[in-house]
Nucleic acid binder design. Structure first.
Lengths: 165, 165
DNA sequence: TTGGAAAGTCAACAAGGCTGACATAAAATC
DNA sequence: GATTTTATGTCAGCCTTGTTGACTTTCCAA
């Protein structure tokens, strides 16, 4: 098959199947590390990754609508609603009827919501910061380039929408 | 708080909270892209990501034991067993009683298992290859450096165990 | 021979996906 | 003004994949 030994390293990109498999494994193991700290914190409060995702994107875009979140998260409204309902009941998220369009709900983090978001994202950022420092500036720029190239075009839009660069 | 505007870009690593958040989002969106193709294929056959993970690591280390897989995957033996059982019943995985230690089971992919593994990993490698080509060789090396630095030390061992570099 | 490790099984449960059906309010369109 | 579309919420039920706990069988090793 196409699997063979690695060719001698060069400037050009010789991408053997083994190198690509290794890249896939890197994504798998790194994602585990990436979510480990948030998962531990969320568990303390009886929440899961789904809550984290909602909280993250509400913080990123305060006043965002439910439909907006659905597009970004790629889940059904029933799934998202279950998560949002508990966050609202627990007083972490506030849902305000839209000013212009009263069918819409604008979502915001409350003080308590901001606090949890901060606790989680601090831990996640600490891990990322350590990894970035260990790998160095050039590596970080490459990291971002590859990840961006790996996204579905539609999600890439959502990624580039904020903060840029 | 520590969140402010981005400082002017330089060679040194000024890691603002916003830059780190952006990095986290990149991981989130990229992982979605990374799993999208395999998920579609698995769905055709009525399998999920859990099956993919098992198949991947059995292919990587033919003859691996259940305990070994448990350590790599980080799930309970009950969870893994459910997945392995269906793969064995469906004839994708073969479980042979250990030669030295007959309590152990050595796991192998059958012909059919190899075929499914190939179909899935081909799609995943194609996505990775395209991303690597788009980002360029230096970016790929940075990508790997950062991901490796992001892993839990224990998982990092499993990552570095094979293929090296 | 007995303790403990490896593996498997059963049962029960939870999170968080999904589909489908239906309700309501408001906006948009005809 | 009547009708249709859109945004949201909700109920019910199903699936996958994770969990814990209890228990059994096998079998290596002290």
């Amino acid at each position: 098959m196409a699997d063979a030994q690695d060719p001698p390293g060069q400037g050009l990109l010789f991408l053997t199947d083994e190198q690509l498999r290794k890249g896939a494994e890197a994504m798998f193991f790194a994602y585990r590390g990436f979510t480990a700290d948030p998962d531990r914190i969320l568990d303390k409060y009886g929440y899961g990754r789904a809550h984290h995702r909602a909280i993250h994107f509400i913080r990123r875009s305060p006043g965002t609508t439910v439909n907006n979140l659905l597009a970004i998260l790629g889940v059904t409204k029933q799934s998202l609603n279950r998560v949002l309902r508990t966050l609202i009941e627990d007083g972490l998220v506030e849902s305000r009827v839209g000013a212009r369009d009263k069918r819409e709900r604008n979502l915001f983090l409350t003080e308590a919501g901001m606090a949890l978001e901060h606790e989680i994202s601090s831990a996640q950022r600490a891990r990322l910061r350590a990894a970035f420092l260990e790998a160095g500036p050039d590596a970080v720029s490459g990291f971002r380039k590859v990840l961006e190239a790996m996204m579905d075009p539609e999600l890439r839009r959502h990624y580039k929408r904020t903060g840029g660069k």
